[in-house]
Amino acid sequence: MIEIYFASSSSGMVRQFAERLGRPAHDLGDRDVRRSVPEGPWVLITPSYKTGNPDNDTIPEPVRRFLRDPVTRRRMVGIMGSGNRNFGSHYQAAARTIARISGRPVLFEFELQGTQWDVADARKVLDELEVALEAAHSA
């Protein structure tokens, strides 16, 4: 089963979304989680923040630290992003930047904590990804 690793601010909106996906969800705010290495394929859920400084990176520090490990990066199969459309060009900046750098796809984007329909759509994306990975592995 594809597991979820997420970064969430104190508002807990990304945590709420991750926990509603019905899969193991690991909080990158926890030091032990950040120091772990996923055993199999995993998906990152990251928020993006408007920094007001276009030169300032919007990737949360816990995500940056977790992705330092080459095995962790290699096992990541995709990214989901949470953002706020009020941030304009910064909307989904972290997810899109990580996707560009890692060569992994942005699987799903949602605003704030997501709606019940977003959760259902994200679950479907994860289920389809899991089927595709199993098919590729057995081929």
Rank of each mutant, 00 (worst) to 15 (best):
R75P: 08
R68L: 11
L107T: 00
T46H: 03
E61H: 08
L28C: 09
E61Y: 06
N86W: 12
N86H: 13
V119R: 04
I4H: 03
A95E: 04
I79H: 04
G29Y: 06
W42G: 00
F108V: 00
P38C: 06
F108I: 02
S11N: 13
K50M: 15
V37D: 02
A136Y: 01
F66T: 03
V14Q: 05
V131N: 15
I59T: 06
N56S: 14
T58I: 03
L126P: 11
I59G: 03
S48G: 11
I2D: 05
G114T: 02
V43G: 01
P47A: 09
N53Y: 10
F87T: 07
W117S: 14
G81P: 05
R34L: 07
P41N: 11
P47M: 13
V125Q: 10
A135V: 05
Q113H: 07
V125M: 09
G81H: 04
I101S: 12
R31I: 01
E111R: 00
A25F: 10
W117T: 14
D57H: 11
R104N: 10
A25D: 08
A95R: 03
V106K: 02
A99E: 07
P105G: 10
D55F: 06
E3T: 15
R20K: 14
S11C: 10
R123S: 12
S10I: 06
T46L: 04
R100W: 02
P70V: 03
Y91E: 15
S8N: 06
T72N: 04
R34G: 10
P41Y: 04
L67R: 00
V43D: 00
P60M: 00
R123W: 13
S9Q: 14
Y5V: 00
Q92M: 14
S48P: 12
A25H: 06
E19C: 05
G29E: 11
